[in-house]
């Protein structure tokens, strides 16, 4: 405990670094997953290749992905970009399917009503389909957030500072304090991400509270 108090600054810095590494891919991943999920939903033949293709990314071990990334995308080896890109891929692996599912769950009658009210397809997508898909997308996003926080800690192997450094530090000195601080830090950060997503989901789905129904 005294170690924790003595190192508050470092813990805070690394938590912010970790939040950045895990959070940015979440945002990029979501922004990319929206059109991809829409494509998968809109064009039937694309559904299987898109969903299965991105799903496969999910099974690539992060240990290997981070180290091999520079050879694939030509970045500098200890550049945070490797982690950002890697985690974006994992985020996509989860979210493309979720977005496609979420959009697919919008009742046909609702879509038809919107069209009848004069919505153009683009407007309908943003004003009707997407908002109605928010609860489902949000559920996927929460899982991706937790996953990103955990995987980001592997970035130590390529020298990107984040909470995972406390793991190797504690391990190599047979010292529980940093190790536990690192783990707890990750769990807390994941819960904060989760909370933020929940709050945003609520802001986006006022009808859930207004009508008392959950859809």
């Amino acid at each position: 405990m005294t170690w924790f108090i003595d190192h508050l600054d470092l813990v805070w810095t690394r938590t912010l670094q970790h939040a950045y590494l895990a959070g940015l891919p979440l945002v990029i991943g979501l922004l990319l997953a929206l059109p991809l999920g829409w494509l998968a939903r809109r064009y039937r033949p694309l559904f299987v290749p898109l969903i299965a293709g991105f799903g496969l990314l999910y099974t690539i071990p992060s240990l290997a992905l981070f180290v091999l990334m520079p050879a694939i995308i030509g970045t500098q080896i200890i550049s945070p970009t490797n982690v950002i890109v890697g985690l974006t891929l994992y985020t996509l692996a989860l979210l493309v399917r979720t977005v496609a599912d979420g959009l697919g769950a919008v009742p046909e009658s609702v879509k038809q009503s919107a069209t009848a009210m004069g919505y153009t397809p683009v407007k309908r997508f943003f004003a009707v389909d997407l908002p109605l898909a928010v609860p489902v997308i949000s559920a996927g996003l929460r899982v991706a957030a937790v996953s990103n926080v955990s995987i980001a800690s592997v970035a130590t192997i390529i020298g990107i500072p984040q909470l995972g450094l406390f793991f190797s530090d504690g391990f190599s000195r047979d010292f529980y304090d940093p190790l536990i601080v690192g783990i707890v830090g990750c769990v807390v950060l994941a819960l904060v991400f989760d909370g933020v997503i929940l709050l945003l989901t609520r802001a986006f789905t006022p009808w859930v509270r207004a009508t008392g129904s959950r859809a």
């Binding site: 810095t13 939040a19 950045y20 959070g23 945002v27």
Partner: peptide, 17 residues
Amino acid sequence: LMATAACGNSGGDPLAS
């Protein structure tokens, strides 16, 4: 979300220690 993600960013690149 960007802002949340980048909240550590106020003092420049958060990754350069």
